[in-house]
Design a protein around this nucleic acid. Structure first.
Length: 208
DNA sequence: TGCCAGGCCCTCTTTAGGGCCTT
């Protein structure tokens, strides 16, 4: 059953790979319902070890801040409830999904929710962008966020802004009443050269 | 001590290589 709720999420982590022992140090997320942000989730979390100076500089999250944060397990258990039943979006979702799944697995949980990637979809919907870094798209599209880049909630807000912008752009360009999650998800997966034919098919199908 | 990922996408491609994107 497709969900009408969407959670756009972002992890700050100790590194690039849970397979090499890296863990999340912060989660930020916004819940979107009917095209509007209606809730949000943010928490630092203690990974159980000290993070590198590179990560502290990159994120602005210090080991002192993490020392008093709740452990990953309790934060992720709460976050699992927050996302239940929602479709999921992240910028470069392959990164966030592997950390989410690794933490859920530690809790003995499995993810049922579907992921879509705002970066892959943006490559099709915004072909003129100079690159597809989140910060570049935020500046290009004039998206406002409430915090500093490379903090989880601010980046989740930024990615949600990119996502909603792309939906509005597709509605305007193709005169569509709605752009379902499944269309956005599929758009990120098809070869770029197939996008015009794919969208023509969508427009035709929705007018039948 | 030094190094470590991985999925996607483009092209000088498909029996491959390298850049992008995330921390």
């Amino acid at each position: 059953m497709p969900s009408s709720d969407l959670v756009v999420l972002d992890f700050e982590t100790s590194g690039l790979s849970p397979a090499l022992g890296d863990r999340p140090i912060e989660i930020g997320a916004v819940l979107i319902r009917s095209g509007r942000v209606v809730d949000q989730f943010q928490s630092l979390m203690n990974p159980g070890f000290k993070v590198s100076s590179f990560i502290q500089d990159y994120t602005g999250i210090s080991n002192r801040m993490l020392a008093t944060a709740p452990p990953c397990e309790s934060v992720m258990a709460e976050f699992a409830t927050f996302i239940t039943g929602s479709d999921l979006v992240a910028h470069n979702a392959s990164f966030d999904s592997k950390f989410l799944d690794a933490e859920l697995n530690r809790l003995g949980l499995e993810r049922d929710e579907e992921f879509a990637c705002s970066m892959l979809t943006a490559r099709r919907v915004i072909p003129s962008a100079p690159n597809y870094k989140l910060g570049t798209l935020v500046n290009l599209l004039g998206i406002r966020t409430s915090g500093q880049a490379h903090r989880a909630l601010a980046d989740a807000q930024a990615a949600s802004g990119v996502w909603l912008h792309m939906i509005a752009e597709l509605k305007r360009t193709y005169a569509l009443r709605s752009v379902p999650f499944e269309l956005m998800q599929l758009l990120g997966k098809i070869p770029k050269r197939n996008v015009p034919a794919f969208m023509a098919e969508q427009v035709s199908g929705r007018r039948r």
